[in-house]
Amino acid sequence: MQSYDYVFNKPQFLTSVTITVQRVLLGVTLNMLLTILAAYPLSKERSSFRFRTLYAWIFVFTILFYGGLIPWYMTIRATGLLDSVWALVLPGAVPVFNIVILLNFFRGLPRELEESAFVDGARHWTVLLKIFVPLSMPALATLTLFCVVTHWNSWFDGLILMNHPERYPLSSYLQTVVIGKDLNQLSPQDVLRLSEISDRTSKSAQIFVGILPVLLLYPFLQKYFVKGIVLGSVKG
């Protein structure tokens, strides 16, 4: 337990946990809102939403083509978000894969439900909030789990988008502590030293704290995600 004491009293560990919690809360909320809002119109037929295919391709194209690391970094720098928690949240705020999964799920829902709602004079917002969202709870739970895990585990963006190590989220901080190698300054002797890791216990303690939330969250959501993945990904 000594090493846990040590870990929890380290100021940088605590701030990194705070930043991670912030990014998970902000990021997942934003992810899910945007996913639902984009998946609903894209799930409509061409007859009711004329440019559906065009818009769907605008979304999917971002999976197909990537501008590259340097342009991506420079764009974020130009927005002035570097060093703030928004840099970890906004660039990945639109999870296109999740949108595709959810829109396929939406299309599997019985058409009659929304039709009768429209006949009764409901608007799109009502149909989305009162019919689609409540019926998609298994899918939404799955996607929420994915988003939480993605945000909790992301380390690379923190490493390059935060200029000050004090602002690292937990995963980036763990990366520097556990893997802890700056490629610039690694000499052959260091590589040798890498082979004989020391201070195992404090590292293990931090690793354990790092995976704890995933371990706690995962069993509860497991029954949903198996259903959600199968429904969303393998159709016809």
Binding site: G67, P71, W72, T75, L90, P91, G92, V94
Partner: peptide, 12 residues
């Protein structure tokens, strides 16, 4: 958001 963080970098 996609425009800002995915399409703008493509011009990079």
């Amino acid at each position: 958001l996609l425009l800002t963080f995915c399409y703008v970098p493509m011009f990079g």
